[in-house]
Design a protein around this nucleic acid. Structure first.
Length: 683
DNA sequence: AGCCATGCACCG
DNA sequence: CGGTGCATGGCT
């Protein structure tokens, strides 16, 4: 190539967050990438804006990590739900464990750091201002300068207000409780998010990756063997290149200045080759940069744009976690991967300036704990075992790493989709659900437009596996203890069924969730639940209950339907109703007698009842978790207790509680129902 | 049909 | 011999 040889890195400069100083003019005039959208230069944020510590990420914000595979998740400090919060205040939470619910089973919790909550409280979030950029904008209605997209980020979410206040200018209700995905299905997101296959139209483009105030993630690419090889050419996904890089008409292209995360500046030649009536875009001269980042095939480079300068920033994400990666330099070739390495691999912390990109959580329902990528990567880490697949001739990068068998590169490519979908969160929402427990304190439940918001004062408990009974419909029932192992077994394979179902991105696989867009892991889960109706037949019983649920509600036919039960009927329903009725009566009696807050009754009564059916109530207290789980109807009884005593502290919060429904947990209703049943067939 | 990973011929 | 530009073929 006659074009100027790839320059060596320009003298490294520490990243200057707001250094609007234009890059020193070079004769070659490397180009700063302009935003693909006609975004007007943003005026300085209004004073109340504090939550955007603009500039390159000052380290990735705290986040939920490790929700992968069998490894327990690690709760790494506070999470600010604000996707754009670069500087969550770890010591100040405005709102914790704010449950953002979408589907019945979703215990999706949001934490807002103090700063962001303060913003939230100020009611500056307004759907009018809800921009795709997630930045400051002028309200089209009132012209007020506001920030939007702060809670769950970006576009096309329908504002759901939970009792907010009206904007004093445009009278729109501005306090946002949550956004619901509205127009963009997870599938669309997914289709758009496919690496290298974004849509080119501006609208879709804006959905490719989340926009932040200063760092706009553009796209990323997993390095192929040839990308990481010594040729020094990084093949760019065509659509990405055309969408985010300057238009070039000549094959020679343009020199492009890119800053890496350490502040080093590199100049790559951005060019293309004619190829089958099309073009093949490459960045040339990337070898030094790749090497400096110590990247290998399978790792991912990310491209972001630093606004308003339009500076191109290059980050990366290692394909493997650090320990594994480090291991591979020391580990003997035959070092067998530990199962956690092979199955529970967690991508290493993203080094990109926009860690949010890495948190493009593609939550994939079909994802198994061990994604193909992980396996492939694990294989590659082991070198030998992967190499057997035809090392391939030519330049399979003889260099430092021996992992780059050609076929592996292909495999990487092929598997990239899965990797992208999972990104940091290689976990299904079902799995995530297992890992989330509501905080011990009871939530206050707000129903807005028929959607519940359960607000918890405490953050969710992470890392404890909760065997929710879930199915594709995205529902669960905490009546897991009522399920037999067979029932469980029937439900569990659902997921593997999904696994097989989805392979092609061209398919309309509603099973695949791709919420993306800068949401944190859990936010995606929320979106998932809301935006992706998973094809499954909910029961008619209760929104929270799904096929397989054997709780008292679900085992009954809809009211007025089903066979009449005889007095002597010993069916599950009748037995349960009787038992619970007795329990209820017992409690009432006892409460009358003692007239004391009967916190302790919670477990014991049900326990006692379930064991003896009647009799004196023990005065001991807590139920062991196992006990509770094993208890036939503990949670429900507890739920009853919960409501009767209004005691906020329970070992379990019954998520099945629906305050607006009084047919189940409400003691009155329950009593009524039980009475009804018992009147039919008193025993 | 188009993308893209990579093979490979050509050229200096 | 290595870099460059293009061709090929796998894959979606």
């Amino acid at each position: 190539m006659s074009s100027p040889a790839p320059q060596q890195p320009v003298p490294a400069k520490p990243p200057t967050p707001s250094a609007a100083a234009a890059p020193a003019p070079v004769s070659a005039t490397p180009i700063s990438v302009q935003p693909p959208h006609p975004i007007q230069p943003k005026p300085p944020p209004p004073p109340q804006q504090q939550l955007q510590a603009a500039g390159p990420a000052s380290g990735p914000p705290p986040q939920l990590l490790n929700l992968v595979g069998s490894q327990p998740p690690v709760y790494r400090g506070p999470i600010c739900w604000n996707a754009y919060c670069k500087d969550p205040d770890p010591n100040s939470f405005g709102r914790r464990g704010w449950k953002v619910r979408s589907g019945p089973p979703f215990s999706v919790y949001a934490d807002l750091c103090g700063r962001c909550y303060s913003q939230f409280e100020q009611g500056i979030y307004c759907e009018t201002f809800h921009s795709e950029e997630g930045g400051w904008r002028n309200c089209e209605t009132c012209g007020r300068r506001v920030h939007c997209g702060c809670i769950v980020s970006i576009h096309k979410y329908q504002l759901r207000d939970a009792g907010g206040v009206d904007c004093n200018k445009c009278a729109r209700n501005t306090r946002t409780a949550m956004y619901y995905p509205q127009n963009v299905s997870g599938y669309e997101f997914q289709a758009q998010m496919r690496n290298g296959r974004p849509r080119v139209d501006a609208k879709a483009r804006s959905q490719l990756l989340p926009r932040s105030h200063s760092v706009t993630p553009l796209f990323e690419k997993m390095l192929s063997a040839s990308d990481a090889g010594r040729i020094g050419r990084l093949v760019l996904p065509k659509k990405c290149a055309e969408a985010y890089f300057p238009a070039i008409s000549q094959p020679e292209g343009l020199p492009l200045k890119v800053q890496d995360i350490s502040g080093k500046e590199w100049i790559f030649q951005f060019r293309f080759w004619p190829n089958n009536n099309s073009r093949m875009y490459v960045l040339e001269g990337v070898t030094p940069c790749i090497q400096s980042m110590q990247l290998q095939a399978g790792d991912t480079v990310t491209f972001s744009r630093l606004d308003p300068e339009g500076k191109l920033v290059m980050g990366f994400r290692k394909a493997t976690n650090l320990s594994t990666e480090q291991d591979q330099t020391t580990k003997p070739a035959n070092g067998a991967p530990t199962s956690s390495e092979a199955n529970g691999k967690v991508p290493a912390p993203d080094s990109s300036p926009n860690a949010a990109v890495a948190r493009q959580n593609k939550v994939n329902v079909e994802n198994n704990s061990s994604s193909p990528v992980e396996q492939a990567t694990a294989k590659m880490d082991k070198g030998g075992s992967a190499q057997k697949e035809s090392p391939g001739p030519g330049q399979s990068s003889p260099g430092a790493v021996k992992r780059k068998a050609t076929s592996v590169g292909q495999k990487i490519k092929r598997l990239r989709m899965d990797n992208e979908e999972s990104m940091e969160l290689k976990i299904t929402w079902e799995e995530a659900q297992e890992l989330l427990r509501p905080p011990p304190k009871a939530p206050s439940i707000v129903v807005v437009d028929g959607h519940e918001f359960e607000e918890y004062e405490e953050p969710p408990i992470l890392g404890r596996k909760t065997y929710f009974v879930t199915d594709q419909s995205g529902s669960s029932c905490e009546c897991a203890q009522e399920m037999s192992m067979e029932e469980l077994a029937q439900l569990i394979p659902i997921k593997s069924g999904l696994t097989g179902a989805k392979k092609s991105k061209g398919k309309m696989d509603v099973d695949t969730i791709d919420a993306s867009d800068g949401l944190d892991t859990l936010a995606n889960l929320a979106i998932l639940g809301e935006g992706e109706p998973i094809p499954s037949q909910p029961t008619t019983k209760h929104p929270r209950h799904r096929p397989g649920c054997s709780c008292i509600v679900c085992i009954q036919p809809p009211s007025g339907k089903g066979p009449k039960h005889k007095q002597t009927c010993t069916c599950n329903v009748c037995m349960t109703v009787r038992r619970r009725f007795r329990t209820l009566m017992l409690r009432r009696e006892k409460r009358k007698d003692t007239d004391s807050p009967c916190k302790k009754e919670a477990g014991q009564s049900s326990q006692t009842v379930s064991q003896s059916g009647s009799g004196p109530v023990a005065t001991t207290a807590s139920i062991s978790p196992q006990k509770t789980d094993a208890n036939a109807d503990g949670p429900e009884d507890m739920a009853v207790d919960h409501k009767m005593t209004s005691s906020p502290v329970k070992n379990h919060i019954d998520l099945n509680i629906q305050p607006d429904r009084d047919d189940e947990q409400s003691p009155k209703a329950e009593a009524a129902g039980a009475t009804r049943l018992l009147l039919d067939n008193p025993t």
